[in-house]
Amino acid sequence: MAAAGAQVVLVARRKSRLEQLEQKIKAAGGTAYSIVADLTSAAEASEVIEKTIAQFGRLDTLVNAAGVMMNGPSIASPLDEWDQMVNINLRGLMYITKAALPQLLAAVGTSQRKVADVVNISSVSGRVAAPAVAIYTATKFAVTAATEAWRQEFTKQSLRFSVIEPGATVSELFDAKDGQWEGFRSMFGEVERLHAEDIAEAVTFIVTNPRRVAINEVLIRPTDQA
Score class of each variant (00 low, 15 high):
M1G: 13
A2C: 07
A3C: 02
A6C: 10
A6W: 15
A6D: 14
V9C: 10
V9S: 10
V9G: 11
V9T: 15
V9Q: 14
L10E: 11
V11F: 05
V11K: 08
A12Q: 04
Q20S: 15
L21E: 15
I35A: 09
A37C: 11
D38H: 15
D38R: 09
T40K: 09
A42I: 06
E47A: 11
I49N: 13
I49T: 08
K51C: 02
K51N: 11
I53F: 05
L59F: 12
L59Y: 13
L62W: 12
L62E: 12
V63L: 11
A65D: 14
A65E: 07
V68N: 03
N71L: 02
G72F: 02
S74R: 00
S74T: 12
I75L: 14
A76V: 01
A76F: 01
S77Y: 02
L79V: 14
L79H: 09
D83A: 03
Q84D: 15
M85L: 05
M85E: 12
V86D: 03
V86S: 03
N87L: 06
I88S: 01
N89W: 12
L90C: 02
R91P: 00
A99M: 06
L101I: 15
L101D: 04
Q103D: 10
Q103L: 00
L105A: 06
V108Y: 13
S111A: 13
S111C: 06
K114P: 04
V118D: 14
V119L: 09
N120K: 04
S122C: 10
S125D: 10
A129V: 13
A129K: 03
I135H: 06
T139Y: 14
K140C: 04
V143H: 13
A145W: 04
A146Q: 11
T147E: 07
W150V: 00
W150Q: 10
R151S: 11
T155W: 07
K156M: 04
S158T: 05
F161K: 02
P166F: 09
P166N: 07
A168H: 01
A168N: 01
S171A: 09
D178N: 05
D178R: 06
W181S: 02
E182T: 12
F184T: 00
S186R: 04
E190I: 08
I199F: 07
A200I: 03
E201K: 07
A202H: 00
F205A: 07
T208P: 03
P210Q: 02
R211V: 13
R211T: 12
N216W: 10
I220E: 01
R221Y: 11
D224I: 06
D224R: 03
Q225S: 08
Q225V: 06
